[in-house]
Design a protein around this nucleic acid. Structure first.
Length: 821
RNA sequence: GCCGAAGUGGCGGAAUUGGCAGACGCGCACGACUCAAAAUCGUGUUCCCGAAAGGAGUGUGGGUUCGAGUCCCACCUUCGGCACCA
């Protein structure tokens, strides 16, 4: 008998598919579209790992399933190829980043092909190639024209190890997302994209994404950090017209303010303390704060430390003077960098007031409680009724939030406002291997964007990689440029763009990958977007996925795309674990996909990874599990090979099937229904596969003497059902059944609801909810008949003997429950 | 502290609308084939007691219901995100 030899057939079919352009995108406009997309890989020097293997296997099932179901499917692949590792390789190994990256891209592409994935390689996109990054620059200019790209001097996150600034989203627990070094602060002039303008739309859009995991939406909501409250402006009489505006979510407690606190970096601080005895210690304190790392500064259990400035602010409604303090717990980059202290109704303020002996004034009182205990033992943060609040006394505090904000508004002293935690996206990077920001600085004309017709601004080759400076600053030919406006000598921007800019629009580019004049044409992009299923890792929940949504909304506003959300459905695949831990070199628990493919074939590897867990859950690698999957494929293989003779025979479907044939037909159609639903509706590939396994078990126990026509049909259908999961072996077996043409172009089988109906059904008979007997009844038996039969069996009679039957519940087709006592 | 997800056999996991808990696979045990082994095929496999009948059982405690892994209330544990956020 012919042996199953994955090596041989996988190489054979991969070549055939390539030679026949089998996976070239179907453009037939009469078919419904489907865009299946997996996050493109970062071509590091490591090659393919199990995480890749998993995401591509999932995406490939989705794409193949849709193709067989009559969709025209876009299923492209590319590489996210700019970024630090290539540049560091250049420094450490003395290689050229471009060559290094192109080699890695080629390698990962080769390894992806070994998985047997159905990509349209003609649409390949590599972000480090000038024909791609040209349009990063084009898009930057679009943002600039629309007032969404701006340059400002700000205190920014600096990674001392990567020698570059980072966006807020790229700092995790005060550490660099890539190298884990502690991030410090630096005052630098940098380019930002105005994502904060889109905060509300980014938040609101999440409600229109029912097919996104709740988890990711929650993370984005958290990150955007919407907070409703009010601005309140206090004046500082001793400083003339100076004002301090605070943000609060509790304007209802305004009459309980007994002090203000400013962040140490607040611009007003120097004026408040100038010439006072407080000046010296406060300046020392500010210096100390500056030296602290982000981690120390924002740690929840850091001791609250404050200093009085000696200055006082005038309460906007009472006119009372309250002391102004500065303290470490107030952050300059949230709200206004100033807060009002209401110790009676805020735990943190309470703590602070206790420590420094500040006044605690209660202004809210429980609805039906007794007079407030003096002094308060802890902050009262519940709802209640206002007291000691002038005209607002007796008002419910919820109502007072609005009433007091309105009053402030009326008097021009503040009013309701919304605050977001989200900061603008800092995109400048002081590194070489990225897209040059297309800007020129002219002494006479100022900031000058590079004209679109001059794009791309190409990365120069004459640079020095010494690990100390931004290499671009070492290229004379690059730095010196002519001012596009006046033509005089000018200086070119040497920073490059965050690579997350590159990946925030690549899925548009796939629709029109070779367009030389614009990033993509509206016709092409509108044919395919939104992405119907986007598959990738959870680690991009607030990075790539947030940036992509932002960029899409800007392109929507610019009239370039018709969608304002790029990814209709999102599937975040879990990690691949070994012995309970993420695979990593340092743990020494890495299993190489290529080794597995070499030993068992890609089909086995794909099958195992899809079968071992639902896609969104972490998956525990199991060597014996892989062997099990391989065993299953061998089992299927033998089933087909053993029946090669059968496939040569023609059958006219028999008018009446024998009992076994009928049962097989029922199992077959049940399987089609199950597999179709599990892939198409639920993305539960593990249960789809398990039901195929059950079908195979049925085929193995099907007697030789029973109907052959249905047996043959079941075998052929089995191959079709397996095709999305294990494309090579399915293709080989499809040929054995005598079919011409690829199984991957065949139609997905349809199920016949009437085949699912049974003549007789086994139902459970319960007494008081416990199963006591089983009963086989005719499928069309009436409730009454079923009840009668259930009550009449010997076993049931024995159980109800001496008891009174109170009630009998008949659930048709399922069970009978007899209530007796 | 706030938000999100999850807790089911020895293990991965299944049970889609409240209806026979443990599908499918791994592992394990036994059997067949074999001189033997591998491969393959078959049988069994939640736990306890038992010859059988039975009893217990989906993190814990309560509730709703004829009936709860599934719904409600209160808690525990684990994982993930945010957080001196005003």
């Amino acid at each position: 008998m012919k042996e199953y030899s994955p090596k041989e057939i996988e190489a054979k079919w991969q070549k055939v598919w390539q030679d026949t352009d089998l996976y070239k995108t179907d453009e037939d406009p009469s078919k419904p579209k489907y865009y299946a997309l997996e996050q493109f890989p970062y071509p590091s020097g490591e090659g393919l790992h199990m995480g890749h293997m998993r995401v591509y296997s999932i995406g490939d099932v989705v794409a193949r399933f849709r193709r067989m179901n009559g969709y025209r499917v876009l299923h492209p692949m590319g590489a996210d190829a700019f970024g630090l590792p290539a540049e560091n390789a250049a420094i450490n190994r003395g290689v050229n980043p471009r060559e290094w990256t192109l080699n890695n891209m080629e390698r990962i592409r080769r390894e992806q092909a070994l998985l047997g994935v159905s990509y349209d390689w003609d649409r390949y996109v590599g972000t480090c190639l000038p024909d791609y990054y040209k349009f990063n620059q084009w898009l930057f200019l679009l943002f600039y024209e629309r007032g969404l790209a701006y340059r400002k001097k700000a205190s920014v996150n600096w990674c001392p190890s990567c020698n570059t600034v980072l966006a807020n989203e790229q700092v995790e627990d005060g550490r660099c997302w890539r190298c884990d070094s502690e991030v410090t602060k630096k005052e630098l002039e940098q380019w930002f994209l105005r994502i904060t303008d889109y905060a509300e739309r980014l938040l609101e859009g999440l409600d229109r994404l029912p097919d996104w995991p709740e988890k990711v939406k929650a993370m984005q909501r958290n990150w955007i950090g919407k907070s409703e409250g009010a601005h309140v402006t206090f004046s500082v009489p001793e400083c003339g017209d100076e004002k301090v505006t605070v943000f609060t979510t509790r304007p209802d407690t305004l009459y309980g303010v007994t002090y203000l606190v400013l962040a140490p970096e607040h611009p007003l601080v120097p004026r408040l303390i100038k010439g006072k005895k407080e000046e010296e210690p406060i300046l020392r304190f500010i210096e100390e704060m500056k030296k602290q790392s982000e981690i120390e500064r924002t740690s929840t259990d850091a001791e609250k430390v404050g200093y009085p400035t000696g200055a006082f602010a005038k309460h906007p409604l009472t006119g009372e003077l309250v002391p102004i303090w500065i303290a470490n717990y107030v952050l300059m980059d949230y709200g206004t960098g100033a807060v009002m202290g209401v110790p009676a109704h805020d735990e943190r303020d309470f703590q602070f007031a206790r420590k420094y002996g500040l006044e605690i004034k209660q202004v809210i009182w429980p609805q039906d409680g007794d007079a407030p205990a003096e002094p308060l033992a802890e902050a009262y943060t519940e709802d209640g009724i206002l007291i000691s609040s002038g005209p607002f006394d007796g008002l419910d505090n919820r109502a007072a939030i609005k009433a007091i904000a309105d009053k402030l508004q009326e008097q021009g002293l503040g009013g309701s406002t919304v605050n977001y935690r989200l900061r603008d996206w800092l995109i400048s990077r002081q590194r070489y291997w990225g897209t040059p920001i297309p800007v020129i600085y002219c002494d006479d004309c100022g900031v000058q964007p590079v004209p679109k017709e001059d794009l791309p601004v190409v990365l120069p080759e004459d640079v020095v990689f010494d690990g100390k400076r931004n290499p671009l600053t070492t290229s004379e030919t690059f730095v010196h440029a002519k001012c596009p406006s006046c033509g005089k000598q000018a200086r070119r921007e040497t920073d490059t763009m965050d690579t997350f800019v590159d990946s925030s629009w690549y899925y548009f580019r796939y629709t029109d990958a070779h367009n030389e004049t614009v990033p993509f044409s509206p016709e092409e992009v509108n044919k395919w977007l939104p992405v119907d299923e986007y598959i990738g890792g959870i680690e991009h929940a607030v990075l790539h996925l947030l940036y992509s949504r932002f960029v899409t909304k800007v392109l929507y506003d610019a009239g370039m795309v018709q969608v304002d959300e790029p990814f209709k459905s999102l599937l975040t695949q879990g990690m691949v674990l070994k012995d309970g831990f993420k695979m990593s070199k340092s743990k020494g628990n890495v299993v190489s996909p290529l080794e597995i493919i070499d030993r068992f074939g890609a089909d086995t590897a794909r099958l195992f990874i899809l079968f071992a867990a639902p896609p969104d859950r972490d998956l525990e690698w199991s060597d014996t599990g892989v062997e099990g999957s391989h065993r299953f494929l061998n089992r299927v293989w033998r089933l087909i090979v053993q029946n090669e003779e059968l496939f040569k025979q023609e059958f006219t479907p028999s008018a009446s099937l024998d009992a076994e044939g009928k049962e097989l037909r029922r199992v077959l159609h049940k399987t089609i229904k199950k597999v179709t639903g599990e892939i198409g509706e639920r993305s539960h590939f593990n249960t789809a596969i398990s039901s195929i396994m059950e079908l195979v078990n049925s085929l193995y126990s099907y007697p030789d003497t029973a109907d052959r026509a249905i047996y043959k049909e079941a075998l052929e259908t089995l191959v079709l059902l397996l095709a999305p999961f294990v494309p090579h072996i399915a293709e080989e077996m499809w040929q054995m059944t005598g079919r011409k043409g690829s199984v991957h172009l065949a139609s997905w089988p349809k199920y016949d609801e009437s085949a699912l109906v049974l003549d007789e059904i086994e139902i459970a008979v319960q007494i008081n909810g416990k199963v006591r007997d089983k009963l086989v009844v005719s499928a069309n038996a009436s409730r009454k008949e079923v009840e009668k039969q259930a009550l009449s069996t010997d076993r049931i009679q024995g159980w109800i003997d001496g008891k009174t039957v109170r009630k009998v519940i008949v659930v048709p087709g399922k069970l009978v429950n007899i209530v007796a006592n």
